Amino acid sequence: MVRAARLLPAAAVLLLSLPSLAQEEPEVDCGNAMAQIELNICADRDYQAADAELNAAYGQAMAAAREMDDSVRDMGEQYVGAADALTRAQRAWIGYRDGQCELAGFEARGGSMEPMLVSGCLADLTRKRTAELKALFTEED
Rank of each mutant, 00 (worst) to 15 (best):
V28C: 12
A123E: 00
M75H: 09
R6L: 12
L18G: 06
D70N: 09
V2L: 14
A10G: 07
P19T: 13
L133I: 07
A57N: 08
A49W: 02
S17M: 11
V2R: 15
D46C: 02
R91T: 13
S71G: 15
D29V: 12
G111K: 07
S119P: 10
D29S: 12
Q100S: 07
L136M: 02
E38T: 01
K128F: 12
L18M: 04
G99E: 06
A63H: 06
E114L: 10
L125V: 12
A89G: 05
V72W: 04
M75K: 07
M116Y: 05
L54S: 09
L15C: 08
A89F: 06
D44K: 12
T130D: 00
P9R: 06
T87C: 08
L14H: 13
G95A: 14
L39T: 00
V2Q: 15
G31R: 04
A43H: 09
A43Y: 05
E107L: 14
G105F: 04
G110F: 02
M116G: 11
A33W: 06
C121I: 09
Y79F: 06
G120N: 12
G81T: 13
V2K: 13
F106Y: 14
D98H: 15
A83D: 05
G111E: 01
A50F: 05
E38C: 07
M113S: 06
V118G: 12
A108H: 04
V80F: 06
D84T: 01
A49N: 10
V28D: 13
L54W: 03
M34I: 01
M1I: 14
M68W: 15
A85W: 02
L21I: 15
A10S: 10
R127G: 08
C42I: 02
C42L: 06
D46K: 12
A61N: 03
A56G: 01
R3C: 05
